[in-house]
Measured scan of single mutants.
Amino acid sequence: TFELKGKVGKVVKIAEDHYLVEVEGDKWIAYSDEKLSLGDRVMVVDVDGLKLKVKRIP
């Protein structure tokens, strides 16, 4: 999972307290300090167990 840091993915689902992002064909639970929208491109900035911390990228 640490090899996911720096990888780019996209938001595929928005849940009440987390996001579902697809990175390299796999779906992961993710969270972010900013509000994300469906389809946003994101970069993995940290890995916390099986959850990814992501940030939006242009």
Rank of each mutant, 00 (worst) to 15 (best):
I29Y: 11
Y31H: 05
S32V: 12
V47L: 10
D17K: 12
V47G: 05
L38G: 07
D48C: 06
E22K: 05
I14Q: 13
D26L: 15
K10H: 10
E16G: 12
K51M: 06
D33A: 05
D17P: 07
K13M: 08
D46G: 03
I29W: 11
V42R: 00
S32Y: 07
V12Y: 10
E3M: 01
V47C: 03
Y31R: 09
E16R: 12
P58Q: 11
R56P: 13
Y19N: 12
D48V: 04
K51V: 09
K27W: 10
L52K: 01
V54K: 00
S32T: 03
L4A: 02
E3Y: 05
M43C: 04
I57V: 14
G6W: 02
M43L: 11
K53M: 12
G25D: 09
M43Q: 08
L4P: 14
V44K: 00
A30E: 00
R56Y: 14
S32K: 14
D46C: 03
D17V: 13
L36N: 02
Y31S: 10
G6A: 01
L50Q: 09
K55E: 13
L38C: 07
E34Q: 10
V21Y: 01
L52S: 02
V8Y: 05
D40S: 08
V23H: 02
G6E: 02
R41Y: 07
L52T: 06
L38A: 11
S37V: 15
D26V: 10
E22R: 06
D26E: 12
T1R: 15
K13Q: 06
V44N: 01
D40A: 05
L20A: 10
S37N: 12
V42T: 12
G25V: 14
S37L: 06
D26R: 10
K55G: 15
V12D: 09
G49H: 13
G39W: 07
K5I: 13
I14L: 09
D46N: 04
D26T: 09
K51R: 11
Y19C: 04
H18T: 10
R41F: 12
T1Y: 14
Y19A: 09
W28E: 03
D48R: 05
P58G: 15
D46R: 02
T1S: 14
E3R: 01
K35W: 03
I57Q: 07
V8R: 05
K10W: 11
L20F: 12
D48I: 05
P58E: 13
G9N: 00
D40L: 10
L38F: 10
K13A: 14
R56L: 09
K55P: 00
V23Y: 01
V54I: 14
L50N: 08
I57R: 06
G6S: 01
K10R: 12
Y31Q: 06
V11T: 14
G39R: 04
A30P: 00
R41I: 12
V47S: 03
L20Q: 09
S32C: 04
V42I: 15
E3C: 02
R56W: 10
T1A: 15
K13C: 04
L38P: 15
L36D: 00
G49L: 12
P58T: 12
R41H: 15
K55S: 15
E22P: 01
V8A: 05
K13N: 09
K35R: 10
L36W: 03
R41L: 02
V11C: 04
P58F: 07
V44Q: 01
K13V: 09
R41T: 13
K5E: 14
G6F: 02
S37F: 03
F2L: 15
T1M: 15
D17G: 09
E24N: 05
K10E: 13
A30Q: 00
K53Y: 13
D46V: 04
Y31T: 05
G25Q: 11
G25T: 13
D26A: 15
K7F: 02
V44T: 03
V45N: 14
L38D: 13
E24C: 05
V47M: 13
G6N: 03
W28P: 01
G9Q: 00
K53I: 04
W28F: 11
R56E: 11
R41M: 15
V23D: 01
V44L: 02
A30N: 01
G49V: 08
D33K: 06
A30F: 01
E16H: 11
L38T: 12
E22M: 02
D40H: 05
L4I: 07
A15C: 05
V47W: 03
G6D: 04
R56A: 06
V44P: 02
E24W: 02
Y19G: 11
V12M: 13
K53L: 10
F2Y: 05
K35S: 11
M43F: 09
K5P: 10
R41V: 12
A30R: 00
E34N: 09
E16S: 11
K7M: 03
F2V: 13
V11A: 06
K55I: 15
E22S: 05
E3N: 03
A30I: 02
T1E: 09
V44H: 01
V11Q: 00
V8G: 09
V23K: 00
G39D: 13
E24M: 05
P58Y: 14
Y31A: 10
V54N: 00
K27I: 06
D26S: 12
V44M: 02
V12P: 00
D17F: 10
G25Y: 14
V23A: 04
V45R: 03
S37I: 08
I14K: 09
G9R: 00
V8H: 15
P58R: 04
G39V: 15
V11H: 00
S32R: 14
G9F: 02
P58H: 15
I57F: 10
L36R: 01
E16C: 05
A15N: 11
P58N: 08
K55N: 10
E3A: 01
W28V: 03
R56N: 07
G25M: 09
K5A: 11
H18A: 08
D46H: 04
G9H: 00
R41N: 13
L52C: 03
D26I: 04
I14V: 10
E3H: 03
L52R: 01
G49I: 03
D17H: 07
K13F: 13
K27H: 06
L38S: 14
M43P: 01
K51P: 04
E16V: 11
L4Q: 04
G6T: 01
K7P: 00
K7V: 01
I14Y: 09
K53D: 14
D40G: 11
G49R: 07
D33T: 12
K53H: 15
M43Y: 11
V42G: 02
A30G: 11
D48F: 04
I29M: 07
L50R: 04
H18L: 12
D46A: 03
V23Q: 01
V11F: 01
I29H: 08
H18V: 11
K27A: 04
L20D: 12
K35M: 13
P58C: 04
V21T: 14
K13Y: 09
R56S: 03
G39T: 15
W28R: 05
V21A: 13
Y31K: 14
W28N: 02
I14C: 04
V11I: 09
R56T: 14
V44D: 00
A15V: 15
E22T: 05
V44F: 15
L36F: 15
F2K: 15
L50K: 07
K5D: 13
V21I: 05
D17E: 15
S32P: 06
E24R: 02
E34M: 06
G39P: 06
D33L: 03
K7A: 02
K27T: 05
D17M: 08
V11W: 00
V47R: 07
Y31F: 11
V8N: 10
K7T: 02
L38N: 04
V42H: 01
E24G: 11
L36T: 03
D33F: 05
V42S: 02
H18Q: 09
W28Q: 02
E34S: 07
I14S: 11
I29N: 08
E3P: 14
S32M: 15
L36V: 13
L20K: 11
L38E: 09
H18K: 09
V21M: 08
K55V: 15
E34A: 07
L52A: 03
Y31W: 10
A15G: 11
V54Q: 00
S37K: 14
G25H: 09
K27M: 08
K51D: 10
D33P: 08
A15P: 12
V54G: 01
A30S: 04
K10I: 12
K7E: 03
R41K: 09
V54P: 00
D40F: 13
